[in-house]
Design a protein around this nucleic acid. Structure first.
Length: 246
DNA sequence: CTGGGGACGGGGCCC
DNA sequence: TGGGCCCCGTCCCCA
């Protein structure tokens, strides 16, 4: 079962240069503020993605992180398994200005109201948009996209064409399936440069790297306590640390 | 209760 | 245009 349908739209993305990132330690002057349920996260203390034991420490992107060897994939792939690892273990953006808006969860199951009739045969339908940009609406949910390609990709989240041959679980994209297959094979191609702990998922390694940071990425605006994950900060605030917690 | 790991999802960019 | 890849993020569960 899908855990979430994400709707993310915040700051303009910029490909972070992680190779440089690690050399930026100590020079974290940019502040990032995350807002969630009224909370303000002062990320100005965020040094970088994570702090090496020494500021003079050279970039330590570990060898095991080499993603160029997808060969270790299990043969039990799937109806759509191919390449790509999906997520990355690279350190996250240097100092993104995190304007956090609680992610809206959209279960695209048709429970949301539709304001327009939905064709039955078409995967996509054009919305009567007055703006210059055309809109392509998903027939399964109210989401709309400005490009057909984006819509088609989205539709895959409904059709879930990538099926694990081991357990039958279906995914929208090949690399999601690949990541899933690692749960069967136990493959963990992403290693932490600090503790050598290995992960099957880049995002998880990224989160793990935060645990090595002296000053973590998410900071409570009230008590200045930092957390490695936004969820932890959210828990922290909701548990009442800060009087303003909701 | 907190911290962390595991699993997984979507959007956007690049080729 | 489509696929691959990356980033960011969340939820669940466990120690």
């Amino acid at each position: 079962m899908p855990r979430s349908f994400l709707v993310k739209k915040y700051f303009a993305k910029q490909k972070p240069n992680y190779s440089e990132l690690e050399s930026q330690n100590g020079d974290n002057t940019s502040a990032a503020t995350c807002l969630t349920t009224g909370l303000v996260w002062d990320l100005s203390v965020l040094p970088t993605f994570y702090l090496p034991t020494s500021q003079t420490e050279p970039p330590t992107i570990p060898g095991p992180l080499d993603l160029s060897s997808p060969s270790s994939f299990s043969s039990s792939a799937s109806s759509c398994g191919e390449e790509d690892e999906g997520r990355t273990s690279d350190p996250p953006s240097p100092e993104p200005v995190h304007t956090y808006t609680p992610r809206q969860r959209m279960k695209c199951t048709g429970v949301m109201q539709h304001t327009s009739p939905q064709p039955e045969d078409e995967e996509e339908r054009e919305a009567p948009v007055t703006a210059a940009r055309p809109a392509f609406l998903c027939k399964h949910c109210p989401k709309e996209y400005t490009s057909l390609g984006a819509l088609k990709m989205h539709i895959r989240s409904h059709t879930l064409p990538c099926v694990c041959t081991t357990c039958g679980k279906a995914f929208s994209r090949p690399w999601l399936l690949r990541g899933h297959i690692r749960t069967h094979t136990g493959e963990r191609p992403f290693s932490c440069p600090h503790c050598n702990r290995a992960f099957a998922d880049r995002s998880n390694l990224r989160a793990h790297l935060q645990t090595h940071a002296e000053v973590k990425k998410y900071q409570c605006g009230i008590c200045s306590r930092t957390f490695s994950r936004m969820s932890l900060l959210q828990k922290h605030s909701s548990s009442g640390c800060c009087s303003t917690a909701v």
